[in-house]
Design a protein around this nucleic acid. Structure first.
Lengths: 156, 156
DNA sequence: CCGTATCCTGATAGATACTG
DNA sequence: CAGTATCTATCAGGATACGG
């Protein structure tokens, strides 16, 4: 699929042992972590709502939320709505926000292959058009998986 | 983050119970499954290579490969190189191929947040330019996570 | 070369009950 | 409301040894 150009290490094995995909999966490993993040993108901020909407038990929600805060994808702060008492809220950090394309790509794939087209879609708020996850090169070309090659990065 | 427009069901709960993200995660649930798929994209086709390159034990490789074939992301066939004996090979199906944006998005995020920029990059084979995962609407606009709304799909 | 069979450990996760 | 404490079941995954 993806062409490999010069990315074998001296022993002839792959660069896989320092792979960013594996490192990402070390941070977001479990189904419940993905579902918590999904809810965060949908605007959920409170403990009980995470557990209910992601349909996971409270102990699991507590464990995942703690780990996601530790890894810096969520941060926990206090929030007081006017005239209400203070509540705690989990908010996405920049690091967490930037995981959104992963969720969007999973959603797109699930829509197509496991959910009969899906019932819901992402749209551009300004123009109302449906949104897709795409691979695009710096020259602006749209790509499929077989238009790619994997190469060592130039030293920055 | 993502604006919700009319996607609550009558009980006031979220559409999450029929969520395509959850359904996708039911198919590709584990770290080892993602790593097997990564290797498939990198061109690996044989059992022993999957186990070695993804750095997982043979029993785990066997289990994941079987599940991925059952779910239709890989298919198993026979392959004979000229003058060699027949070997078995696992190939990505269309369904498996289309999961590539998920892997690319994980790689991009891991590069940035967990791997010090990464050591390797995806490039467009034709023009050599680096490749990014992007959100794009049907009108051609490039989007960030906060430019989105989630809405019911029109009945097709 | 391509797996399977066993055995074992730790992580994931639900249910339930309880506390600040 | 926001969790924690237990307890239990199931799953992910490694190590080792073995069979087609």
């Amino acid at each position: 699929m993806v062409e490999m150009t010069g990315v074998l290490n001296p022993r002839g094995t792959w660069v896989a042992d320092r792979c960013s995909i594996a490192k990402a999966l070390d941070v977001v490993r479990t189904r419940s972590a993905f579902l918590i993040l999904r809810e965060a993108f949908y605007g959920t901020t409170r403990f009980a709502d995470f557990a209910e909407r992601a349909d996971i038990s409270e102990p699991v929600a507590a464990a995942r939320l703690r780990e996601l805060v530790e890894h810096g994808l969520l941060e926990l702060g206090d929030y007081r709505a006017p005239g209400q008492r203070t509540r705690r809220e989990y908010r996405l950090t920049r690091k967490g926000e930037e995981l959104f394309p992963v969720l969007a790509a999973l959603m797109q794939w699930g829509d197509r292959w496991e959910n009969d087209g899906g019932r819901v879609e992402l749209r551009h708020r300004d123009c109302g058009e449906p949104v897709e996850v795409a691979l695009r090169c710096a020259a602006g070309h749209e790509l499929g998986p077989s238009d790619l090659e994997l190469a060592r990065k130039p030293k920055a």
